[in-house]
């Protein structure tokens, strides 16, 4: 456990001292700020964070890979992976440590966005249900997106490749529900169910359905498992 902590702590320090993370934070807040205020310009604005959440998950398709691309790809590139893998550290400890670090940075971003919720609560009388549920959904979605990015970072020693592949997977997951109609039959249904949106929309409507929570947790577990396996397989190449 101490090694997980050590790996995570080192990565967190790098996040808070690297420009990439701050640029990601800046873009996230600027864009989501725009989504948040967009609706407020209406003559009869609704006190809701739904546009913020809907925008945030799209923005995160691009930003999650930017946060995770460095995690293992850089170790491979610098050769430090050689020291990491020859230290008495289990492969899962490395993956979980790195994942936790990206999660911490993501949660800080989420916390910064509480500003929007606070504004709503101060100046209006929003329905709290969709806001709490929406945040739960967004945190689950973000955690899943980070696990996807971690996997692709484990697979390549090129950060750009890692980021682009992760974006591809996240986009595919985002649009998967469209396959529902296009493919049809059982296959279409299965692909459609793997889509992110169907599972996320419930949250931003204020519905906390266990199915959706299980969906996101399974996605995270699946990609973390693959990451650990991929790291293990590096030894065999």
């Amino acid at each position: 456990m101490r090694t997980v902590q050590a790996v995570a702590w080192k990565e967190i320090q790098i996040y808070f001292s690297s420009p990439t993370a701050y640029i990601v934070g800046l873009i996230f807040l600027a864009l989501t700020g725009f989504f948040f205020t967009q609706d407020l310009g209406d003559p009869f604005p609704e006190a809701t964070l739904t546009p913020f959440f809907d925008g945030a998950i799209v923005v995160f398709i691009l930003l999650a890979p930017a946060l995770t691309m460095r995690l293992l790809a850089e170790e491979s590139k610098l050769g430090t992976i050689e020291l990491l893998l020859t230290s008495p550290v289990r492969d899962w400890e490395i993956i979980i440590g790195k994942y936790l670090a990206s999660l911490v940075f993501f949660l800080v971003l989420v916390a910064l966005s509480f500003f929007y919720a606070i504004l709503l609560f101060v100046y209006a009388d929003p329905d709290p249900g969709p806001i709490y549920a929406g945040y739960l959904g967004f945190i689950l979605y973000g955690s899943a997106a980070l696990s996807v990015g971690l996997l692709t970072s484990t697979m390549s020693n090129n950060q750009i490749v890692s980021a682009v592949v992760a974006m591809g997977i996240l986009l595919a997951m985002f649009f998967a529900d469209r396959a529902f109609g296009a493919v049809g039959g059982l296959a279409g249904e299965i692909i459609g169910e793997m889509g992110v949106r169907g599972h996320f929309d419930d949250f931003s409507r204020g519905v906390i359905d266990t199915t959706n929570i299980v969906y996101f947790i399974s996605v995270i577990a699946f990609f973390l498992f693959l990451s650990i396996r991929t790291l293990e397989s590096r030894r065999w190449r």
Binding site: R2, A6, K10, I14, L78, T80, E82
Partner: peptide
């Protein structure tokens, strides 16, 4: 204890920071 040919180091860490980190990884 292993010193690979390329001497892999985290270039943005300090000397003591790096050594502490490697020590922790070695338990």
């Amino acid at each position: 204890g292993y010193l690979p040919e390329t001497v892999p180091l985290y270039t943005d860490m300090s000397v003591t920071g790096y050594l502490k980190y490697m020590g922790t990884l070695r338990g």
